[in-house]
Simulated scan of single mutants.
Amino acid sequence: MANRAYNFNAGPAALPLEVLERAQKQFVEFENSGMSLMEMSHRGAVYEKVHFEAVALLRELMGIPHNYKVLFIQGGASTQFAMVPMNLIKSGKAPAYIATGSWATKAIQEAKMFGDITIAASTEADQYRRVPAINELQYSEDTSYLHLTSNETIEGTQWREYPDTGSVPLIGDLSSDILCRPIDVSQFAVIYAGAQKNLGPSGVTIVIIREDLIGQPDLPVPTMLRYSTHAKADSLYNTPPTFAVYMMNETLKWLKEQGGAAAMEQRNREKARLLYEVIDGSSGFYRGFAEPGSRSIMNVTFRLGSEELDKKFVKESEAEGFVGLKGHRSVGGMRASIYNAVPVESVRALVNFMKDFQSRNG
């Protein structure tokens, strides 16, 4: 389709064109049922097939061990900021958090509502331009859990490897880099992620939780905010976001067709390399925000020499069909979000625009 934008939105983000076209064909009538999937009961066999296929595909693509439950929950990662401490804080054992940027900070603020927490490490003094080294982490072996944000979309930083926390449960917010590369799920006690960056549209949140952590919380927790509620009912306790789950299932099929997480990593690293090479080779015209050792392969953040140039870059890029390049209002500058579904061709087009813009304004 010639009129497709170069979509670099941070989320909701680009979806694979093939997935959109499949959904378009099935939108009015799903599998000869006489109705759209959105019109069906979530208790019916047709929707349940889609639902459990999505669970099975996620298990396959991520290599999720058998002793983990896969849950589909609503409310985004922001609701998980509360659900994690509500369900997992143990009496007398403060959880520990790693402060790496805007989203980690939001998780920390929410957790403080439920008791004392400790900060295992913080890179605030470095303007969150990096993630801490593993040997910087300080937390007690008696802590309820250790929480990290795998990829900070706003600052453009990403963990390259995760800490081995031993008996301390590791909780990971992987909202913006889930399935961008292979990971060892067994390193984590809980992984959560909003789907709207790498796995589908907004509306459904994935929670992957080790079964031994699903129990009676020490805190009083409303029914809908207990992991046990969703685990016992296979995420069908109440009406799920059926169309979002369907779209996620189709996106997971696409990911498998592309070669899975390993193929995605190769493709994502190539996209990131193209952009970082332009930034690093611009003699200071473009300045990367994240430190090189912490650079994200999902969100490439950079700035130009002045606010005036930033505005001109945004205006001219939009005129050329580029969408979503303006950085988050909290840090400014530019941000190119290059999630799984962003084609390499879109990144090459952006690279050419950046080179041309520098030649005219450098």
Rank of each mutant, 00 (worst) to 15 (best):
M1W: 10
Y6E: 12
N9V: 02
P12N: 08
A14V: 06
P16S: 09
L20G: 10
R22Q: 15
Q24T: 15
V28Y: 02
S33N: 07
G34P: 01
M35L: 08
M40Q: 11
A45H: 05
A45E: 12
E48W: 04
K49P: 07
H51D: 09
L58M: 15
L61T: 02
T79Y: 07
M83D: 02
P85F: 09
N87W: 03
G101P: 05
A104R: 01
M113Y: 06
I117P: 03
A120Y: 03
A121P: 01
D126E: 14
Q127G: 06
R129C: 14
R129L: 11
E136K: 03
L137P: 00
S140Y: 03
D142H: 11
S144P: 02
H147R: 08
T149S: 14
E152A: 14
E152N: 10
I154P: 00
T157D: 05
Q158S: 13
Y162I: 06
I171M: 10
D173K: 01
C180L: 10
V185C: 08
Q187R: 14
A189V: 13
A189M: 13
Q196H: 14
L199R: 04
V204M: 09
I208Q: 01
E211Q: 11
L213W: 08
Q216F: 02
P217F: 09
L225G: 02
Y227P: 08
Y227R: 06
T229Y: 14
H230R: 13
P240G: 13
P241R: 12
V245P: 01
Y246N: 08
M247R: 05
M247F: 05
N249L: 07
K256F: 09
G259T: 05
E265S: 10
R267P: 00
N268S: 11
R269M: 13
Y276P: 01
E277P: 00
V278Q: 01
Y286M: 11
F289L: 10
A290C: 10
G293W: 02
R303I: 04
L304M: 13
V314T: 10
V314L: 09
K315G: 06
S317F: 09
G324P: 04
L325P: 02
L325G: 11
G327Q: 11
G332L: 11
G333A: 13
S337Q: 10
N340T: 14
V342R: 03
V347A: 11
D356I: 06
F357A: 12
Q358T: 04
Q358P: 01
